[in-house]
């Protein structure tokens, strides 16, 4: 099962990197979004397999090992929120960038320094 996860993560990650290397700013944004989602998916797979809901007394006699580890899910929730904030900021920057230049081709603009 972990081989399937690893392959899926690798494929998604390479898709993200491919998009990030494009000239079009919007594709770069989508690529960075995909890369940050890969990190989230990776965190979920790190949390181990499926188990019961981690609520004390919920399933009566289950031992600790039968519960899903709740920590990675909490981490992923936080990471998703942060990723969302950053991506929306990046999108609005891209829009302002488009307003200034009337195009989103990063190569033709070069410069910046």
């Amino acid at each position: 099962m972990s081989l399937v996860y690893a392959t899926a993560l690798a494929a998604t990650f390479s898709a993200g990197v491919y998009l990030m290397l494009r000239r079009d700013a919007v594709r770069v944004v989508i690529g960075s979004l995909i890369v940050s989602q890969v990190a989230n998916m990776y965190l979920m797979t790190m949390g181990g397999g499926r188990g019961g809901a981690p609520i004390l007394g919920h399933h009566g006699s289950k031992s600790a090992s039968q519960f899903t580890d709740p920590v990675p899910q909490a981490l992923v929730l936080t990471a998703i929120v942060i990723g969302f904030a950053t991506t929306s900021l990046l999108l609005s920057l891209t829009y302002r960038f488009y307003e200034e230049n009337q195009e989103v081709d990063l190569e033709s603009l070069g410069g910046g320094n």
């Binding site: 960075s32 940050s36 942060i82 960038f97 230049n101």
Partner: peptide
Amino acid sequence: KDSLLVSMRYVVLNLIGSS
């Protein structure tokens, strides 16, 4: 123009770093 481009680059770099 310049500061937007620089900021975008910085965001993308740090998104990779954060991941």
